[in-house]
Amino acid sequence: MDNENILTGKIHQALNNGRKALIPFVPAGFPSKKRFWDVVLELDDAGADIIEIGVPFSDPVADGPVVEKASLRALEQGVNLEWIIEGLAENSPGMRAGIVLMGYFNPFLQFGLQDLAQKARKAGANGLIIPDLILEEVLPYIDMFKEHDLAYIPLVGLNTPPERLKNYAGLDPAFAYLVSVMGITGTRAGADKLLRDKLTQAREAFNCPVALGFGLSTKDQLEPIRDLVDAVVFGSALISHLDEGKSAGDFLRSWR
């Protein structure tokens, strides 16, 4: 396709090379403000296809304790959208991976959504994931995001009904992100029949690639559903790995 979204393209590229696309998530300012961009560059170097940068929020209701702690730590260090966008503008030019900003709605809303779309795109971001901005609430902004060539990536769950998956598909997203556990991030990984069924429904509903995330900590967990997944997202497992002082590149290489 000529005008394929850049994030869609990154996932297709990985699939064409016979592997799943790898999408690491790192909270901005983690493990420290100083080290953060090195971690991002390391992930890029180790072959991340898309990197999700977490924008910290004081009340992250869709996240588990690991991400929440990292988020609060980032806030204490004064990490904010301005710092993220500035750093991104500096570091993104040499990077191969696509960049997605992931964060709760209020910091984006206070920054100004139009302003954000413009500045984030210019700095090198390709998409947004906003866990608390569901279908009905994103509609007022969707055209504006498109105008700025910033992809809105919907999160769907094991309990999202097929009709609603289709409604999300109607937004023509760059990829869809299925949350693999019926809980919060980083606990109870599971790949049972429910997950297979939902992935099958998602593949029917969406024309775009489907990424699976939340609760993935080992490669084995992927085996039973390999055929249904285009990309995998890592959050808590990577954070814990980094927290132990280990290298981001090693983590990612173990998944390749």
Partner: peptide, 10 residues
């Protein structure tokens, strides 16, 4: 409005 994770919509 309803600014919640999709998992709370059902």
């Amino acid at each position: 409005g309803m600014f919640v994770p999709e998992l709370l919509v059902p």
